[in-house]
Amino acid sequence: MSGDENLERELESFLREDDSRLAALYRKLPRPEPDAALDAAVLAMARRAAAAPAPRPAPRRRHWLPLLGAAATVALAVGIAYRLAPQLGNQRGVPAAGGASDAARREEAQAPAATTQAAPPARPAPPAAVTPPVETDRRQLQKVENAAAPAPAPFPGATDATAAAAKAPAPAAAGRVAANREAEMKKSAAAVSESAAAPASMSAPAPAAAAPAEPALRVGTPAGNAFEAPKPAKDRAQDHAYSAAVLRNSRLYPESWIAEIQRLLRAGRREEARQNLELFRSKYPDYRLPEDLRDLP
């Protein structure tokens, strides 16, 4: 039997038996133990520890907290972007939501047809870069006039700017400012009035604010209808009752509209003429109609 085999057998015995020959020999070695002072120190330490509150295990790191924070940040950013998107859209010329802009959009949709009739030959819509100053001036003018005193709504067909401005019982200072602004408006509005379809789409101030501003705008603009104040709800409801052709005609100058109605009558399109006249009367109740139209029901 080789030495290696004996060693392996001894190893197996050493691992298997608790009291192998080698283990038995080991147990005969001196068996030193801690002295009494060491025992006392350890036991005293254990008693102190037991008397004191048990140390709390270190709190587990919550790995989900950073993830939750990141998700909340993303949600917040998306929410802010969602809120700001309409405002940014407005700054870029997108109409704001609301009743006034709804009316403007409706008018805008009808504008091309009106343009073809009001200002032949038709021109392409003016570039957006041209129209904003008019809109801005108009709003500023409204602010000035509102700050003074609201002028009564002028006669729709009025064409004299000075007379309209004189009607407004505004203070002198505000009147002067308004007059200056009016002169500027005449220049800028004249530049764009011939292709007034787009300006029509931009006349969307709040009704209450628009009324005092109308005189200067209306008289200073050849295509005064293009700058009409938004129609009251009643009128808008009325519009829905008329055909698109009638509504297109309502954008004409009153005189042109009357001429169109007369043409319809001559063409035998009596019902269409009657609808036009009905809408005309509702828009211009004080307009003096030609004799041939006065009797039309």
Binding site: V42, M45, A46, A49, P55
Partner: peptide, 16 residues
């Protein structure tokens, strides 16, 4: 002696 005491001390601290 030092390691013996330290061992028990660690055990007591980690009893939870």
């Amino acid at each position: 002696d030092e390691l013996f005491q330290e061992t028990w001390s660690r055990l007591v601290a980690a009893r939870e």
